[in-house]
Design a protein around this nucleic acid. Structure first.
Lengths: 228, 228
DNA sequence: CTATTTTTTTAGACAAGACTAAAATTTTGG
DNA sequence: CCAAAATTTTAGTCTTGTCTAAAAAAATAG
């Protein structure tokens, strides 16, 4: 049993965001990157990084960013597990839209209860993915990433791909995707990439032909299905 | 639309506890009573009462306790609504025991979402009472108290009564009631009140004959059924 | 390779919410 | 009615997490 010093919501948030920014590759995370994502000033970040380093949750070297320790990572993953399970609950049981769950889940992810999350997981029948297509870590913190996932912005032209995830951070993006009828599982035919602005000429299978900006395409995860 | 200044968890807790202590009769609440219930020092209470008074959530006069304003009361009732709905969720959907829900609900009651609570209410099919038998305020803040409810400690001898509520504050009480097989809806035959310590000789209908201490009997709400 | 720009850290301040110790007020008991 | 006891408030301190402004280090450009 490690010492179960409990963290504040704020500390938990920092760990979560460090995890998210560092990505699968576990890169070191810069102070400014955190300030951006957390909407605070760099000086506040520095303060907190010192505290987290004291608690052995991150490695931190002045002017050289930080990275999670094993302990810090396992806490971060736990928070992400909670976040994604709650999102799943909100969508599948309370019929929230996928664009409405993020803010509420940001609050719910900090509820402390040994029992609650496992019961919720069970109640939801052990879902593997959340409403945005992101994998839900299991009880032991294992995350099974979809190895074949790429960004729509990077997919080749003249291919058919399937939408497997969308970035959940922006409500307005999700609303827009809703409007154009793009969902998880949708097929997308990629016809052409416009050199000028990187936008894509596509067809949502069973739906409309249209152009998607590069920025939108960067926030959509797909897997390759076939050449056209 | 009133100004929707949002309150901290702490402020919400104060309002909730002021409501609970003042009871149906809306009595003024003393500083010490709050300190006891909130497990803080009286000086901390004074500080907070000043803040709440500034925000017009309570009436406060030095050395004379406080009482909720209309605005404060409606916020308190909202928190209680959330608390009781979450408890109901935990017990009826996640199969928590009635003795396990209080602490988690104390956290969940502070989740802020316009939509969440109404959706939850709907999901639970608009329950009228929580797992401890307390009434759940409706969307508009109306609470329908059971007018016929008395404390078991005060019920007459040689009567049959029905358990309609138990105080939820103490996990150990609830566990004990579980052990002796006492539930909401249980019938209790009250045979005798021992003058020495106020304990009661009872029979749980369909269960055992036994003695209940006065302290336990004070925490059980019942309604009269018939004379024996 | 130095000068400027960018990033990061330090120093000092503040608000929230708690605490302790001491002072003030109210209540109570003879 | 006055003295002791209980309650409540004030004053000053602490921690957490944020901020601004200024200093320090690193990165970049000519």
């Amino acid at each position: 049993m490690a010492k179960e010093e409990k963290l504040t919501h704020s500390e938990e948030n920092y760990l979560k965001v460090i995890f998210q920014i560092s990505g699968q590759s576990r890169d070191r995370v810069s102070t400014n990157a955190l300030a951006d994502k957390l909407c605070t000033k760099a000086s506040s970040i520095t303060d907190m990084l010192k505290k987290l380093a004291d608690k052995k949750l991150i490695g931190y070297k002045k002017y050289n960013g930080c990275e999670l320790t094993t302990k810090g990572e396992s806490i971060a993953v736990e928070i992400i597990r909670k976040h994604r399970l709650w999102e799943t609950f909100l969508v599948s049981k309370l019929s929230f839209g996928w664009d409405e769950v993020h803010d509420v889940a940001e609050q719910l992810e900090h509820i402390r209860s040994l029992k609650l999350i496992d019961k919720l997981d069970q109640f939801l029948d052990y879902p593997k993915f959340d409403p945005h297509g992101d994998p839900i870590p299991d009880k032991d913190g294992n995350i099974t990433y979809r190895k074949s996932k790429i960004r729509l912005a990077e997919s080749a032209v003249n291919t058919l791909v399937e939408v497997v995830s969308v970035d959940e951070d922006s409500q307005s993006l999700l609303k827009y995707l809703d409007e154009i009828g793009l969902k998880l599982g949708s097929g997308i035919k990629v016809f052409e990439r416009i050199p000028f602005d990187g936008s894509l000429k596509i067809e949502i299978v069973g739906g409309q032909k249209m152009y998607l900006s590069e920025k939108v395409a960067e926030n959509i995860g797909v897997r390759f299905i076939e050449k056209l």
